[in-house]
Amino acid sequence: MTGALGALGSAVLAMLASIGRVVIFAANTVKHLALHPFYPREFFQALVQIGWLSLPVVGLTAFFTGGALALQIYAGGARFSAEAVVPSIVAIGMVRELGPVLGGLMVAARVASSIAAEIGTMKVTEQIDALVTLSTDPMKYLTLPRVLAATLSLPILVAVGDAIGIFGGFLVGVNRLDFNSAAYLKNTVDFLETADVVSGMVKGAVFGFIVALMGCYHGMNSGRGAQGVGRATKSAVVAASVLILGANYILTEVFFTS
């Protein structure tokens, strides 16, 4: 019994220590935003890698999700003769919830893993030590550009994903469910509010921060060898995904219930 309690205590302490380390890492990252120097080349490279090159995967995810959502809402709405709500529910569902969450998760899979693998490999091959000996702070050179690029590009990715998702719903609605195209569009526009779009983009920014932060944190703390880098990559994706879902609930509470 004492052994089990001891093990539980150790696990809780280890978890709290991990949370503490992540919080300190996040605070350090934010602090470096205000400190000289800034590396624009690394920032723009990260912007292309994280933002631009994630567009196909986010777009495809949104497109198919929008289409499937239209089919689901139509089938569900038919039970109480509410098929007409398809355009508005697709729009609100995509913009408020599915666009940011699925976009965030897809970027977590694509970006958190690649950042953790890249930085983890740099760590085990002593490239991070080499940066330090060359008077370059790895937090400024590696972490800040990636975190900033992800935080700024995710809202745009989410907005583009929202539009593509709504378009996917529109195509299904018009071609499969016999909606009038003008009526579908009018319903979509009428029911969407600015706050819906803005809340989704704010979620995107938070998710972007989480994704890049987890990639950098786990990469910087990678263990030795191929196994260490593999474990860091897996941890980055799992942590980013869970944190995105947790943060999504909290942000939804803040935006829509208060």
């Binding site: 091959t125 002593e126 490239q127 000996t133 060359l134 008077s135």
Partner: peptide, 29 residues
Amino acid sequence: LARFGMLFQGGALFDSLPVWQNIAFRLMR
């Protein structure tokens, strides 16, 4: 650190940069 140079065991060259930018890394920042 500006007084030091270091040759690492595995080279520790930055994969993402061409050779000349690796060598001139400190001279460009």
